[in-house]
């Protein structure tokens, strides 16, 4: 009786030793700051000065005066569309690297991360120079006497391309990492048993790699929701997203209390998204091998 108890004790110690530093790190450097944001969201600002007058006005403004919900809705729609597009494109690409990449597959994945060595400001500015009205694309079209492509300039579509540009590599990486440990022979088993390729994909490959996919979706969706930089460069006069307006509160107008309330709302929406993704994950079906099977 004594031996298993000691073993249990030892594994508990190890669990805490490994897990607690990260948890404490988050509590100290994220939770405490977030609490201060929540506190601020109940205060009031006036001419760049914040006053500790407890009130609900910021929430009233954000939740019941359509303006800010309009931005939120724009951001949600953008995030859904961009994430879906990334998902559709990332899967085949990740699949290709994992299955056919051979010994160079790590290199192929690292190459997807390489553009990140250049800052987003520079890359977005360059993207604008390429896609804009007098960009490389439209100049090339002009040389052949073709009309310029209007849909690439200063609108929500251009902004969507820019956001996908920034976050697509996250999705590919997450799916690739999941596929890396996927046993492709399972597919042959399915095919031998008469499954058509699409059916094999839907019943074997997709569910077994759902965790990686869900993580990829989260990695793209959340930053999309909070995106502020891209619409500034590519979105045109009506493309402002929730993140841009949130940034405005802190950088320019100094309305920190209202900004904090907007932040809390964003936080809540993200929590809902994560909860939904979490709920879809069935550990047993994805080949989970850790403790607790």
């Amino acid at each position: 009786m004594a031996a298993p108890r000691r073993l249990f004790y030892r594994s508990e110690t190890r669990f805490l030793l490994l897990g607690l530093p990260g948890v404490m790190f988050v509590v100290f450097f994220l939770l405490f700051p977030i609490v201060s944001v929540i506190v601020f969201s109940f205060w009031r600002t006036e001419s760049y000065e914040i006053y500790a007058d407890w009130n609900l006005d910021n929430y009233r403004t954000v939740l019941f005066e359509g303006t800010y919900l309009t931005f939120l809705w724009r951001s949600i729609v953008t995030a859904v569309v961009v994430t879906a597009a990334c998902l559709v494109y990332a899967w085949p690409v990740a699949y290709f690297i994992a299955k056919y990449g051979g010994r160079y597959r790590l290199l192929l994945v690292l190459a997807l991360a390489a553009p990140f060595f250049t800052g987003a400001v520079l890359r977005l500015s360059a993207l604008q120079a390429i896609m804009g009205p007098i960009g490389v694309i439209n100049m090339a079209l002009g040389m052949f006497g073709l009309p310029a492509v209007e849909f690439l300039m200063f609108n929500k579509f251009a902004s969507g391309i820019g956001i996908a540009y920034l976050y697509l590599p996250f999705m590919v990486t997450a799916i690739y990492l999941s596929l890396l440990n996927f046993n492709f022979q399972l597919l042959n088993v399915a095919k031998v048993n008469g499954a058509r390729p699409w059916r094999a994909f839907l019943t074997v490959t997709w569910p077994l790699n759902w965790i990686g996919t869900a993580i990829g979706i989260t990695l793209v969706f959340i930053p999309c929701l909070a995106e502020s930089l891209t619409p500034t460069f590519l979105g045109g006069p009506s493309g402002k997203l929730y993140g841009s307006v949130l940034g405005l509160q802190f950088d320019q107008t100094g309305t920190w209390a209202l900004g904090s309330a907007m932040g809390v709302l964003l936080f809540a929406v993200c929590c809902v998204v994560i909860a939904v993704m979490w709920w879809t994950i069935d550990l047993r079906r994805t080949g989970f091998t850790g403790a607790g099977r």
């Binding site: 006036e46 309009t70 402002k240 107008t253 209202l258």
Partner: peptide, 19 residues
């Protein structure tokens, strides 16, 4: 100059951007 009321100006600007 500094806007006389950053709060009001912020609201105007957000409403313009959201329209």
């Amino acid at each position: 100059d500094q806007p006389s009321s950053p709060e009001k100006w912020e609201r105007v600007w957000s409403e313009v951007e959201a329209a």
